[in-house]
Computed example of a mutant assay.
Amino acid sequence: MKLRSMALATLLACSGSAFAQSNVTLYGVADINIEYANHVGAIPQAANQFNSGPAHNVYRMNSGGVSGSRWGLRGTEDLGNGLKALFVLENGFSLDSGTLQQSSRLFGRQAYVGVQSATLGQVTLGRQYTSMFEALANFVPGAYATQYEPAALLTGANFREDNTIKYTGQFGPVTALAHWSFGTGLALPAFIGVATPIGGNGEVPGQFRRDSAYGAALAYSAGPFGVTAGYDQWNPTIGTGNGTAKKAVIAASYSYGPAKVMGGYRWGQNKNAADVLIQRDDFYWIGAAYQVTPAVALSLEYDYDNLKNSFGNTGLANPWQVAFIANYAFSKRTDVYLSTAYAKHAGLAMDSVSNFFATGLSTGNSYALANGQNSMLGVALGIRHKF
């Protein structure tokens, strides 16, 4: 009896030690604004005969101006010998309506679990950001500001992917990333030029390539200088076959005191299931972020897309956009902001058929140009609280 009691006490002591080395954190962002935008039409889809309709001025309340509204849980457990278990569950929601985003997923922003080594890096499994998207996060002046950043055009509408195994390694000033998705879970509606929906859930027996995706990136940062390069490929279902969406990128940054200058180039090529070219473009961006005072931050970004081919049309005007954000922080957790952008030959966030209208479809607010229009202006005033 005494031996059994000692064994139980030892077990409880070990359990207590394990729990003491674990932690779980609740975190989130609540971001909302009031926006004005002009020349807005409907996203052209089969339901409206691919007709964006007449132009409207819109006044609306939006969730997520500079950050997507979210709440999440993240945690780690020390396994000893330099190993840790980790997980992240992150929900995206619309603060203006209380509804789920990311196609009504409960944890649509991120949902993964993995193991981290102090020397070898980490391996994670679940719904995650692509390697290219993560590598570029520190090289985009707007810092992926949700409302007007053309992230879906820059990195692809598949910048989050289901069913993904991902490696991340930190080796001094170098970060290495690589991932493979067994099925991205991204489904886009039919558009002009593509008569059937694009993508899907994937993971179909006997169709290993269906909706799969993969990519890799390297980033270097030491002192004021940073540089990154990466590649991403998505193999979406188109009809009864698979197309390809390929992107390669290189970007650099340089910091001088409170200012940071950033810019880069992204090559893109999409083909349909018959291996016929349906889109080819060269995307460029440049800009800067400037911390004027501890409370005031400014950013300016210019984006330009050299659209060489879009569903067989080689004569389209090249879209471009300039975006500006002014931010005032009341504290480390609460700030207000003014965000504005002007886009030419595309909607705000450079939304068009070239990026499958991904920004408008994901947020539920159209940035499609109306019939007869070739520019759009947007201005938003908002508040953000981090917890």
Rank of each mutant, 00 (worst) to 15 (best):
D305K: 10
D303P: 11
Y328T: 03
R333V: 04
A326S: 04
L377Q: 08
G347N: 05
K308A: 11
L381M: 14
S375K: 05
A370R: 12
L348G: 06
S375M: 01
P319D: 07
Q321G: 05
F311D: 05
A370C: 14
M376T: 12
S310G: 14
D305Y: 01
A346F: 01
A326G: 14
L307T: 01
L369W: 02
R333Y: 12
M376K: 02
L361K: 05
M376H: 08
S331R: 02
N306E: 14
I383T: 01
D351I: 02
D303A: 10
N371D: 13
P319W: 02
N327V: 03
S310K: 14
F311H: 14
S339F: 02
F311L: 10
A341D: 11
T340D: 00
W320I: 03
N371S: 08
A380G: 02
K308V: 14
L316H: 13
S354Y: 06
A323G: 08
Y367H: 14
L338C: 01
D305M: 12
N371H: 05
M350Q: 07
Q321R: 06
S354K: 10
L381T: 05
A349R: 03
S354R: 09
A343S: 15
Y367C: 07
N318M: 03
A326M: 03
N309A: 11
G372E: 08
Y367M: 05
N306V: 15
A368K: 13
D335S: 09
F356H: 08
S339K: 13
M350G: 11
Y328G: 10
G382E: 07
H345Q: 08
Q321D: 08
D351L: 08
S331V: 09
A368E: 11
D351R: 05
L316I: 10
I383Q: 13
A380R: 07
G315I: 00
Y367T: 09
V336R: 06
S339C: 03
K344I: 02
V336D: 07
G312C: 12
L377D: 07
N355R: 03
S375G: 09
M376N: 09
R333D: 02
N327I: 00
L348M: 00
F357A: 00
S352P: 15
N374G: 06
L381Q: 03
K332C: 00
F311P: 13
M376F: 01
S354E: 10
L348F: 01
G315A: 14
Y304I: 02
N365F: 06
A380E: 05
G312H: 02
A368D: 04
L361P: 08
L338D: 02
N355T: 07
T363S: 06
N365I: 11
Q321E: 15
N374Q: 09
S310M: 13
D305E: 06
I325N: 15
V353H: 09
Q373A: 06
K344Q: 05
A343I: 03
Y337I: 01
P319A: 03
A358Q: 05
N318H: 04
S331F: 11
L361A: 06
G382I: 03
N371T: 10
Y304L: 10
L338T: 01
S375L: 00
L338K: 07
